[in-house]
Design a protein around this nucleic acid. Structure first.
Lengths: 251, 251
DNA sequence: TTTGGATAGTGTAAAAATGACACAAAGACT
DNA sequence: AGTCTTTGTGTCATTTTTACACTATCCAAA
């Protein structure tokens, strides 16, 4: 099967998998897409796991991650960044895990190296119930997850940390918000990611100084309070900034 | 060989390798340990490569990196950090590369995922000429390297970037200096890593404020100019800092 | 022993960034 | 008309950053 030195292009590599930490933001808190593996392992390990799969020998790692993401959500051209590689020897050994792994076609006893990615999606663009593929996938608040199958909890922690660091350096948070958003929503997003309160006025001042937001001449509608102005991320201005070598958003 | 699902503990995994970017500092500039692959590929690709090897199925990734480092330099307990995973499909295909890979026992046509690490060593602790193992390894100034075999140049760039980010957050530079060092040496080290000049007085002020250096009551000897005080990294004070949650050295 | 060469070591003032803090304005709903 | 909820705004004190130049110390060579 996979032993032949001349591998067929479309063959799965039994030793390397990709797992995706897909972050969303429900305008209140940070969420992550998790998959319910069902009853199989109820007694034997957490049901919830991160989406992932073995890689094909004809794709690179980034492509594999994009594929996993697209297969699950149908979304393309999504912000995606590698977190790192994980893998203890023979970390898969429970009967339940074996069953699960068989279902994704890995050798049950193989040693698997996992390359983890995190991605940022606009939660509105993927509502699991609507998806035909994975009825068993769903958004879970990041802070309410206390365990995951395999080493996925560890991976989640690493992804959170990476996101935390990254957002201090690049304004990637916009990938988690609707096209039009309010400053308060952005504020809550940063607080969720950094996991600490940020002073409202200081936050707004700092963001505005970056000058990468366009204030749409439009207001929220239908909210039972003073409506907020809507903003848009201005990619053009952002590119100007990064070309100067700007790399610190300092939160 | 490697096809058997029940792998023998000590078997090499033909699909996953570890490469190490081993940084040193010659008190003038940042250096990297590179290996000269010899004449084999002189016409066909860069001779120089990063040290690396396939991993064994009974070790985890960090252990594999430590092993590679120790096999090459004899050094243990070295600062080591993962950079990430690399690997395009079938990236190895030149005859020369095949020869080289055979010499490290990989299947010539196999797809190899590389997990890259960077490590920081005190250059004094490894002088290649003295080593019995790799006569063909040597320190090369990072900035003078313009190509490397395989995707190693890309890996080197990523490692440099990671180091740059990391040193802004943790004072890991001490791993590259002798036990006793001068502030000027530390200054040059930071300039080398960040690849930009830093004002002398501002640098010294900033470092001193961190309060993680012990000023030894001892001076340089034998220098043809005013001798500098020697300092030592104070781990105890450093631990106090990190426990408070300090994570920004802000250069 | 004097002198020149080289690097060590030090302070200040202006500008910018940060952190702490409170109240009026706008719309929805009753 | 009144209440509820969230928006949106400014100032001041403190800290941090940046830019900048001269004297002190040791070695070596004259």
């Amino acid at each position: 099967m996979h032993n032949n030195p001349k591998k067929i292009a479309s063959e799965l590599n039994p030793n390397v998998s990709v797992d995706c930490v897909i972050f969303g933001f429900d305008l209140e808190k940070l969420t992550v897409l998790v998959i319910d593996r069902g009853e199989i392992s109820a007694a034997n390990g957490p049901r919830l796991a991160l989406p992932g799969n073995l890689i094909y020998d004809n794709e690179n790692l980034d492509q594999a991650a994009s594929r996993v993401l697209e297969e699950l959500t149908g979304l393309k051209d999504i912000y995606l960044e590698q977190v790192g590689a994980f893998g203890d020897p023979f970390r898969i050994h429970k009967e339940s895990d074996r069953e699960w792994l068989k279902s994704i076609r890995a050798q049950p006893d193989a040693r698997v190296i996992t390359v983890a990615y995190f991605s940022l999606v606009k939660i509105e663009n993927y509502m699991p119930h609507a998806s035909s593929f994975a009825k068993n996938a769903g958004w879970a608040p990041v802070n309410e997850i206390s365990e995951l199958a395999f080493d996925h909890f560890e991976i989640l922690q690493a992804a959170k940390e990476k996101l935390k660091q990254k957002i201090k350096i690049q304004p990637i948070g916009f990938n988690l918000l609707p096209e039009k958003f309010t400053l308060s929503q952005l504020h809550r997003l940063y607080e969720s990611i950094l996991d600490k309160p940020l002073d409202k006025r200081n936050f707004r001042r700092k963001i505005q100084k970056l000058n990468i937001l366009s204030n749409l001449k439009e207001k929220q509608r239908g909210v039972p309070h003073k409506p907020s102005s809507l903003y848009e991320f201005n990619e053009e201005k952002y590119r100007e900034l990064t070309q100067i070598g700007f790399d610190n958003f300092g939160f």
